[in-house]
Simulated scan of single mutants.
Amino acid sequence: MGEHGGVGGGVRLTVDELAARAGVTVRTVRFYGTKGLLPPPELGPRRVGLYGAAHLDRLELIEELQRQGLTLAAIERYLARLPEDSTPLDLAIHRALVASWTPETPEEVTRAQLERRAGRGLTEGQVERLAAMGALERTRDPEVFRVDPGLLPLGVRILDVPIPLETLLAARAVVLEHSRATARELQRLFRETVWKPYRESEPAPAELARMRALTDHIQPMVAQALVTAFQRSLREELGEELSRESDQESGLESGLEPG
Rank of each mutant, 00 (worst) to 15 (best):
V7E: 15
V7H: 13
V11Q: 10
R12W: 13
T14S: 12
L18D: 04
T25L: 04
T25K: 00
V26D: 04
F31N: 12
Y32K: 01
Y32D: 03
G33S: 05
P39H: 05
P39I: 08
L43M: 09
G44P: 01
G44Q: 04
V48F: 01
H55W: 02
L56K: 07
E60G: 00
R67L: 01
R67Y: 03
L70E: 02
L72P: 03
A73N: 08
I75L: 02
R77V: 11
L82P: 04
L82V: 15
D85E: 12
S86D: 11
P88S: 05
I93M: 10
A96V: 07
L97K: 03
T102H: 06
T105M: 06
E107F: 06
R116E: 15
R116L: 11
R116C: 02
R120S: 08
T123E: 08
G125Y: 03
E128V: 12
A132Y: 05
A135G: 11
A135N: 02
E137Q: 14
T139M: 01
T139E: 08
R140G: 15
V144F: 04
R146E: 12
L151E: 13
L154R: 15
R157W: 02
R157L: 07
D160R: 13
V161Y: 07
P162L: 06
A170I: 00
A171V: 09
H178P: 02
H178V: 10
H178Y: 15
S179L: 05
R180C: 06
T182A: 14
E192T: 12
T193I: 00
Y198T: 12
Y198W: 15
E200R: 09
A206M: 07
A206G: 05
E207G: 00
Q219R: 15
M221T: 13
L226E: 15
L226M: 11
T228K: 11
S233P: 03
G239E: 06
Q248K: 12
S250M: 09
E257S: 10
